[in-house]
């Protein structure tokens, strides 16, 4: 005969404690989100009690650190948009071509060597990219573009694009290789060339996955800080001219953080209002990408 309910209550209790601790670590992730939103909102609320939200959204100048203070976020948004646009204009064609090439053309061994090498691009610290943009790319471009300023959106955007290439190429490649084999075979079976198969069948079939990679790349570029802080300048201006110094939202936050802005002042709060703007952009982009991804998974299941 055996004794099934011999009491090991200490064991049972410690199991419960451990589960509680694990639960706690999992819920910390929620606290982080709550913390981010709370911090951004509470400081922004104080900010908007002094600056009207209409001015924030419509004023065409951003000069919180000068005597004549103006609080229009548009110049920072424009700077962010400009560098992001250039980065995507560089990364998308190259990244997508790489994805197609590796999937349809390249040999297995070539792919096995190239993919980790491309990943190296994503591991290099962004401050290093910034150095590269400022000291190599800008002087190089100045040989061809006479009006190019020492700080400009163009170099920063191009280098950011190079950094983002592996993001687009690997996510797009995953999407393309997830297309059912039968579809590809059908295309080849009808005598398509690799190019026709790639653009006629594979890319359209993988379009939602490719779109996700682009959106995530945009989100990454919008939030990128050090490259633009080093190479794009610190002059907020409402322009789409890539040759002159501009300022992005992220650069502005760094600029204020480096200075001696007293805590609790209006200038201090501007970085939270700017941060909130940035957060809204990236949050929206990320959620759009999840939404697309979810629909896309349903399609193939």
């Amino acid at each position: 005969m055996f004794h099934l309910n011999s009491t090991f209550s200490t064991l049972r209790k410690s199991e419960k404690i451990i589960e509680g601790l694990l639960w706690l670590s999992a819920t910390i992730t929620i606290l982080v989100t709550v913390g981010i939103i709370w911090v951004l909102l509470s400081e922004s609320v104080s900010f908007f009690s002094e600056v009207s939200i209409v001015e924030f959204l419509t004023e065409k100048e951003w000069t919180p650190l000068f005597a004549d203070k103006k609080f229009g976020i548009l110049p920072l948004v424009a700077g962010t948009f400009l560098t992001t646009f250039i980065a995507i204009a560089v990364a998308l064609p190259i990244g997508l071509t790489i994805a197609i090439y590796l999937n349809e053309y390249a040999h297995g061994t070539f792919r096995a060597i190239i993919k980790p090498l491309l990943e190296v691009l994503a591991t290099i610290p962004t401050v290093v990219y910034g150095f590269f943009a400022l000291t190599v790319v800008t002087p190089f471009l100045q040989q061809f573009i006479p009006g190019l300023a020492g700080f400009n959106a163009l170099s920063a955007g191009i280098v950011m694009g190079i950094m983002i290439i592996p993001m687009i190429s690997s996510l797009s490649e995953d999407a393309i290789s997830a297309v059912p084999r039968s579809l590809r075979e059908a295309a080849y079976g009808m005598g398509s060339t690799r190019l026709q198969t790639a653009f006629g069948v594979m890319v359209p079939a993988a379009s939602s996955g490719i779109l996700v990679s682009i959106i995530l790349a945009i989100s990454r570029a919008v939030g990128e800080t050090m490259i633009v802080a080093i190479a794009a300048g610190q002059q907020p201006r409402l322009t789409l001219n890539p040759l002159v110094p501009i300022e992005t939202i992220t650069t502005y936050i760094v600029q204020v953080s480096l200075g001696d802005v007293p805590h609790g002042s209006l200038e201090y709060r501007t970085i939270f209002a700017a941060g909130l703007t940035l957060f809204i952009f990236t949050f929206a982009l990320n959620n759009i990408s999840f939404w697309i991804k979810k629909k896309y998974q349903e399609k193939y299941d």
């Binding site: 055996f2 004794h3 099934l4 309910n5 011999s6 090991f8 049972r12």
Partner: peptide, 13 residues
């Protein structure tokens, strides 16, 4: 003894 009884410790079982 009923092994699905609430008092039964599954690990002991």
């Amino acid at each position: 003894r009923d092994i699905y009884d609430k008092k039964i410790r599954v690990d002991e079982l």
